[in-house]
Every structure is written in structure tokens, then in C-alpha cells.
Design a protein around this nucleic acid. Structure first.
Length: 102
DNA sequence: TGCATGACCTCGG
DNA sequence: CCCGAGGCCATGC
């Protein structure tokens, strides 16, 4: 980890991400809120984009509010489908059923 | 020190 | 659902 993006923030985010059960997905805003930074939803995405740098976490269970996955990510959909996450014809996650409820 | 970018969110139309 | 505007924080040049 050459760049230290506030270890505290990353630790809190990963803590929440680890709590996401299989077959469920969470939104960036949801996570941001759980760590007490509801205004920093952007940071969550920004951090998760580099989280693979810190270790392997189920960051594929995190999608945006539209249920859309990362634009450049190819296997994210496959990973989620393997866990039982339902996808719509549009290629988006069915948040009505797979959204992680706290 | 300042400006631009990003896996975003909410509100209104 | 898509489009546009405003906001918020950290990173990188």
C-alpha cells in the first residue's frame, strides 16, 4: 500500500463489506451511512476501487444505487450470480430482493 | 495551494 | 429509468 487513504476510513468500510451476507448486495451510500459518513458515498467507491490493493474483500457485493455494477468490471456479475444474486434483463441487480437490509 | 477526477447520492422534471 | 444540478471527501498533478 503505497498510498495511505486514511486507514480509519478503509478499515471501517472493509468491516461493513465483510458483514455483507452471500446473495446480498449493498450500495455505496448504505455503507457510507453505516460508517457514519453518509455524505462520503463517493469515497466508499473511490476506496473500494483500490481496496484490492490492500487485500481481497467481497467488494463485488457493493453496487451503486441503481443496482449497476462497475462499468469496467467483467467478473463481478458472475461472482454475484454464483452467490445467488438475481440480475435483471438490463444487467442490473434486483435490489428489491438482493439489497442487504440491516 | 488549487483544480480536476471518481466503482456516488438526493432531489426535481 | 434517464438527464441535469449541487454536494461531499480524498487523491494526483
Amino acid at each position: 500500500m503505497s498510498k495511505v487513504l486514511t486507514q480509519t476510513l478503509i478499515y471501517e468500510i472493509l468491516s461493513v463489506v465483510e458483514e455483507i451476507p452471500e446473495g446480498k448486495v449493498a450500495t455505496y451510500g448504505q455503507i457510507a451511512k453505516l460508517i457514519g459518513r453518509d455524505r462520503n458515498a463517493r469515497l466508499v467507491g473511490f476506496v473500494l476501487s483500490k481496496v484490492e490493493y490492500y487485500g481481497r474483500y467481497p467488494c463485488h457485493r457493493v453496487v451503486n444505487h441503481q443496482g449497476r455494477t462497475a462499468p469496467m468490471w467483467s467478473e463481478q456479475r458472475s461472482l454475484l450470480e454464483q452467490e445467488g444474486v438475481v440480475f435483471k434483463s438490463d444487467g442490473k441487480v434486483d435490489l428489491d430482493k438482493c439489497l442487504w437490509k440491516v
